[in-house]
Amino acid sequence: MSAPTDPGIPDAQKSGSVQADRSGTPMVEVRELHKEFGHVHVLKGVDLEVERGSVCVILGPSGSGKSTLLRCMNELEEITGGSVLVDGELMGFRETTDKGSTRLHRLHPRVIAKQRSRIGMVFQRFNLFPHMTALENVMEAPVQVRGDAKSKARARALELLERVGLSDRVDHYPAQLSGGQQQRVAIARALAMDPELMLFDEPTSALDPELVGEVLAVMQDLARSGMTMVVVSHEIGFAREVADKVVFMDDGVIVEEGPPSEVIDAPREARTKDFLSHVL
């Protein structure tokens, strides 16, 4: 409500106005990222850069911390150490300098919500709102978060549902859709906020094998349109074909990263080779 008086908010607003100056910086910059759940050290110093308009696929065995890394990028997890910058903006904190030393201040949840609204996320279990139709799911955030007019949000939602090939399913509830269709609605829902970055957390792992293709096709189309994407996935074929960068994680650290032709086809590290021999 009283946004201008909140000390945290101007930062978030500033980011919008000086966006042009940041075209040289990477879309995502992760520095020395640590994450602990209680006493479990899940991420042990991760550094990662994702260029604008590129697709980064994170591979790794379960428990390697790849989903946690993704969830730290939009602050679904509070980070324990290090920093995450999206579009050059520090996520979750505000930095001040006092007598030469820098201090971090946690941002107000409202500001964090605003930061999140510019990052789309797609979940393994779809997490569509079951009490809303496909169309209402896609309209929800533009209307409720951004305050768009219903008519405008509706037109945009129909456009997005057409883009993911679901024009004939707009009035269906999630339970009336197949897994692949649900995941495509979830992608449309995330795109409705016009995000500058899309995060995919194992988007095809919960799907029947014959439904994986339709979701990957939508993602491939999205990558071609220039969207910056970070994808946690086990789809090696997709990574090889679409990724600009492949990151292999194990035990909370990045073991190896590079173009798919290197990491997937000619891995250097023994752990990468071992993992790929199991999934390929």
Partner: peptide, 18 residues
């Protein structure tokens, strides 16, 4: 209610009350 529901709403930028 499945916690994934609140998480999805959070990821869209919704406030807790909403």
């Amino acid at each position: 209610v499945d916690p994934g529901q609140a998480e999805a709403a959070k990821a869209l930028g919704m406030k807790d009350s909403k």
